[in-house]
Simulated scan of single mutants.
Amino acid sequence: MSAFTLENPVFRDFAYHGTIVLLKMGAMSFLTAIKRFSTGAFVNREDFIGKKPKEIVPSESVERVRRNHLNDLENIPLFLLVGLFYVATNPEPSQALLHFRIFTFSRIMHTLSYQIPIRQPARALTFVAGVGATVSMAVHVLRTLH
């Protein structure tokens, strides 16, 4: 059986959690747009629809969403690539599911702690949990291949 079929429970769980974090990452673009329209903080003069363009001033709430989105762009693709290698090593299904759940939960909690905002170390802890899950999978891949 190929590791990359829906008959493989590890791949099925990976595809499920990978889709969740990709949708979450994509939603950040829409959240950025919502924040821009609600604050009037546009970055291009032509974006001031129906208004006379004013000085372009950054908005803390827009920048907070953008930084959160950038963090997703730095972490989610890495998880997805390492996760594919990890699935190929035929890991124990319950252990794999734990890695996928930790990463998914950590990214959702990271976003909530960033956007609410929740005082540190909340965001840092959620970040470390997600990175830890990815690193743990990477170590498993390297050990399996060596």
Rank of each mutant, 00 (worst) to 15 (best):
M1S: 13
S2D: 15
S2M: 07
S2R: 00
T5R: 05
T5L: 04
L6G: 10
E7I: 06
E7R: 13
N8E: 13
P9M: 10
P9Q: 10
V10K: 09
R12Y: 06
L22Y: 05
L22I: 14
L23P: 04
G26T: 09
M28Y: 06
T32D: 14
A33N: 15
I34S: 14
T39N: 06
F42T: 12
V43H: 09
V43F: 14
E46Y: 08
D47F: 08
D47G: 08
K51S: 09
K54D: 02
K54M: 05
K54A: 11
E55L: 01
I56M: 09
P58A: 13
V62P: 03
E63R: 09
R64P: 06
R64I: 05
R64H: 05
V65W: 07
V65C: 12
V65G: 04
R67K: 11
R67T: 04
N68I: 01
N68S: 14
L70G: 05
E74W: 11
N75M: 12
L78T: 15
F79I: 03
L80S: 03
L81H: 09
L81W: 05
F85C: 10
Y86V: 01
T89F: 01
N90V: 02
P91M: 03
Q95R: 13
L98S: 11
H99F: 08
H99C: 14
H99S: 06
H99E: 11
T104S: 12
T104C: 13
I108L: 14
H110E: 12
T111L: 05
Q115C: 14
I116S: 01
I118C: 03
I118E: 04
Q120K: 10
Q120E: 15
A124P: 00
L125G: 05
T126I: 00
A129L: 15
G132E: 01
A133Y: 06
V135T: 12
S136G: 07
S136N: 10
M137V: 02
M137T: 01
V139H: 05
L142Y: 09
L145I: 13
H146Q: 15
H146C: 10
